[in-house]
Design a protein around this nucleic acid. Structure first.
Lengths: 112, 112
DNA sequence: TTATCATGCTACTAATTGTGTAGCGTCAAG
DNA sequence: CTTGACGCTACACAATTAGTAGCATGATAA
């Protein structure tokens, strides 16, 4: 069970997909960006507005990275999820249900 | 379909749960920590080793935050997921499948 | 033509956050 | 009483993000 430990050289190339995914998604704004694009294309500025006027510096950096990873693409209509990105989007949608229950639980814990 | 737009006052208190979740999960190491704890309890030091010797400063900060949000708890056996955290863990497991397909696709795209 | 406006995006500084290493206080074992 | 592991803090340095200004481009309109 601990046989994986050896593989865990934190080089860069052959890191497990899930870990690479976490590195990508675990950056500020990445999840939010995907969420806002979950069912519509948005222009740079519209997307920025949805994210509470994030710094364009970061937004652009994320967008580039996400495009490089084939999760987003860009056309005249703006930014949007690729097919692969949409699959990811569906997972986020599932997370939404979890989040609601989570928030509810936290709320009741604290009010009582 | 765009009827949600109005709700998007980016105040702070009544932010949608999913957005709060993204703020929490979208911090460096948070997803990874949850992943490493997905099916076993780990001590601080063991967990740190699993995460490639993250700085204990950040690790401890995340652990505190996650505990404050009832996603983790801590006992003599170390850190582990709460019931709520385990549900989240299951979502991450699902993400694992996505990540594999994603990596595969990226790989073939580039080799060709 | 010139003015207006929105678009995507870059530049630059300040503030926040993360990294890396050392090490403290506590405990159990030798 | 040394040794080692534990959870964790301190602190200086590096990297990332925030916040704002503004440019180049293209469309619209006077």
């Amino acid at each position: 069970m601990a046989s994986e430990t050896a593989k865990e050289s934190h080089g860069s190339a052959h890191r497990r997909p899930i870990v690479r995914a976490f590195e990508l998604l675990g950056q500020r704004w990445t999840l939010r960006i995907l969420w806002e694009l979950r069912d519509e294309r948005l222009t740079f500025r519209a997307l920025r507005a949805r994210c509470g006027e994030v710094s364009p510096t970061v937004l652009n950096r994320r967008l580039k990275e996400l495009r490089a990873n084939a999760i987003l693409d860009h056309d005249e209509a703006g930014y949007g999820l690729t097919e692969c990105g949409q699959e990811l989007g569906r997972h986020l949608l599932a997370l939404n249900d979890w989040a609601r229950r989570w928030a509810e639980q936290l709320g009741t814990d604290r009010e009582a």
